[in-house]
């Protein structure tokens, strides 16, 4: 047997692919697949979710969770204003809205399942004019009118189900990527809902007050609250305030609203009630 000792060529057992290129191709592939599958799923879920009777939502024990956490009662002024807003929004007959107030510094308001709207004291304190409060109420009522809470909950459920199936078989660090991508997909829908609710609120302001400065005032408040740089839009449940302002201004322009009337101040008894809450 002849024996020789040749020099073994380099790189015969490895591939020459650039690891970064492979990473990019695979990551983009996964993100693309996840986004398209989830978007399709969400669209399918939406076909059914808004057929869920509102009555079922109302039967959920949401009220027990929200409550009037500290027993604070809404002042008549807010009740009257809410009624005025709601009666102008053409809600379906079976839909009724309950406005809650929470005595807390949080600058926020939200709408949830069962027609419940929650407004925090922190947000009320930032407001100067009635139109701004009306814009908030109209925005939240619009969420309920278009069934956004039940749609959002259904998206969460559907996406969670798919993710739990995938992540049980996928590598756990990859599951993180899948989870983040699906969050981003769901947020896109959430941002669309915000635009829809803004649109409805602006239409309502124009209908009641003849102008929509209340919405613009509200967005200015949001900007001053997040005076730091706002994060990237696709990582958020809400659109950037600048983009919301853009939509509002183009709507005001399209509807040719001429701004003549000035905004309404809050009545004195409401101002003193709010001051006493703190």
């Amino acid at each position: 047997m002849q024996y020789s000792n040749p020099k073994i060529p380099e790189g015969i057992n490895t591939s020459k692919t650039n690891p970064l290129k492979e990473f990019a191709v695979l990551t983009i592939g996964v993100i693309f697949v996840v986004i398209s599958v989830l978007a399709l799923l969400i669209i399918l879920v939406d076909l059914f979710a808004d057929k869920i009777p509102f009555q079922w939502e109302k039967e959920m024990p949401i009220e027990r969770v929200l409550g009037n956490k500290d027993g604070s009662q809404l002042p008549d002024y807010i009740n009257v204003l809410s009624q005025k807003v709601i009666s102008n929004m053409q809600l379906p007959d079976d839909m009724d809205i309950t406005v809650h107030y929470v005595n807390d510094d949080t600058v926020n308001a939200f709408a949830t399942l069962g027609g419940h709207i929650v407004i925090y004291r922190g947000l009320l304190e930032k407001l100067t004019y009635e139109e701004e409060l009306a814009a908030i109420i109209a925005h939240e009522v619009a969420h309920i009118k278009y069934r956004h809470p039940i749609l959002g909950a259904s998206h969460g459920l559907a996406v969670g189900l798919v993710l739990s199936i995938i992540s049980s078989s996928a590598d756990d660090i990859v599951s993180g990527l899948l989870g983040n991508t699906s969050m981003i997909t769901v947020m896109k829908f959430s941002r669309d809902y915000e635009y829809q609710a803004d649109k409805e609120a602006i239409e309502l302001l124009i209908k009641i007050y003849g102008q929509a400065d209340g919405a613009l005032g509200l967005f200015d408040i949001f900007k001053s609250v997040h005076n730091a740089v706002e994060p990237i839009e696709f990582l958020n449940t809400h659109p950037l305030t600048d983009n919301r302002i853009k939509q509002a201004k183009s709507m005001i322009f399209d509807k040719q609203v001429t701004n003549q009337s000035s905004m309404t101040n809050f009545p004195q008894d409401y101002i003193s009630w709010l001051a006493s809450e703190k």
Partner: peptide, 22 residues
């Protein structure tokens, strides 16, 4: 971490796990 991440992604699509070959 990087190699493992790329290998994990490969686990979804199939193919040569080049990051583990070296």
């Amino acid at each position: 971490y990087f190699k493992r991440f790329v290998a994990g992604l490969r686990g979804l699509f199939g193919g040569r796990i080049t990051s583990y070959e070296t």
